[in-house]
């Protein structure tokens, strides 16, 4: 009986649960799904990670290449993130060019890195004006069950902290490029920004870490990026208008989640070193 109501009248089904301040998957309104993090799972990549946020699974792989620096920025390397939402992950995505959602997520990753400045692009420079590192970051969604944004940012940060690049030297006189494959130096990642996504249900209730079902019923969404005790970004692309108090509530919850996620990444990295 409950299953029929869930399919035929999903809003009513959710409202019945939300009245008791709980969600159908037995989570509280401000509770995240259990997060599983696996770092260094892809041996052929310079850095990699796998994140499971409930059922949502995102794998991140980082490949480094050398290239000429971009015009006008001779001392900076560059980072090219790409989020892939393939038909593999959900029946909603069709084969063909990347859907708008994937393009927006890719741009969100670019902005995420840009705004938090967790990687100084200067550190990717090998030889000013001639050779720099380019990091190609592939975030592949393997299972789409909502909140791909948070899973992607978590996977991205974990993979970056796991990335190590071989030392490359350029002989000033001959222009010879030598790669010392045996030596590796870790990428210097200063901080650990974390994103927390909320959806607005029925114009009033805020739910953190939405599942795919909740995303379909949402009337709006908010993503807050925090880094330690600092606020990095507040992103609300339209949707139901919110009061200032509601947004502040989201920011506070995001700080709590930020600390949890940073601790998770640090613990996982430590366990690998051991």
């Amino acid at each position: 009986m409950a299953e029929e109501i869930r399919l035929a009248q999903p809003k009513e089904y959710y409202r019945a649960f939300l009245e008791k301040e709980v969600r159908p998957d037995d989570r509280e309104l401000g509770e995240f799904r259990p997060t599983v993090l696996n770092i260094g799972c892809v041996s052929t990549a310079e850095g990699s990670s796998l994140v499971k946020l409930g059922n949502t699974t995102v794998m991140c792989g980082i490949k480094a290449e050398v290239a000429e620096p971009r015009y006008g920025r001779p001392t900076e390397g560059y980072i090219v993130p790409n989020v892939e939402l393939s038909p593999l992950s959900s029946p909603n995505f069709r084969p063909g060019p990347p859907p708008e959602q994937a393009q927006v997520l890719s741009q969100n990753m670019v902005d995420f890195l840009d705004t938090s400045q967790c990687i100084k692009l200067d550190s990717l420079c090998i030889s000013s004006g001639k050779l720099v590192w380019v990091l190609y970051i592939d975030l592949v969604c393997l299972d789409y069950d909502g909140n791909v944004m948070d899973a992607c940012t978590l996977a991205l940060m974990a993979a970056l902290k796991n990335t190590s690049l071989p030392v490359v030297t350029v002989d000033e006189d001959t222009g010879d490029v030598k790669t010392h494959l045996s030596t590796h130096s870790s990428l210097s990642v200063d901080s650990c920004p974390v994103s927390t996504t909320f959806i607005v249900f029925d114009n009033t209730v805020l739910l953190v870490d939405p599942t795919r079902e909740e995303e379909l019923l949402a009337t709006g969404a908010v993503t807050v990026v925090t880094e330690g005790d600092n606020l990095c970004s507040v992103y609300k692309p339209g949707g139901s208008p919110l009061t200032d108090e509601q947004v502040e509530m989201c920011v506070e919850r995001a700080f709590v989640r930020g600390k949890e996620a940073t601790a998770l990444i640090t613990d996982t990295l430590c366990s690998i070193d051991r």
Binding site: D111, D114, T115, S116, Q117, N230, L231, C232, S233, V234, Y235, K236, P237, G238, G239, P241, L242, T243, D244, V247, V251
Partner: peptide, 16 residues
């Protein structure tokens, strides 16, 4: 009420 917000760069809660 707030409909949308987009931020770039670092800032404190007070500045926000």
């Amino acid at each position: 009420k707030l409909v949308s917000v987009l931020t770039y760069g670092k800032f404190t809660q007070e500045q926000y």
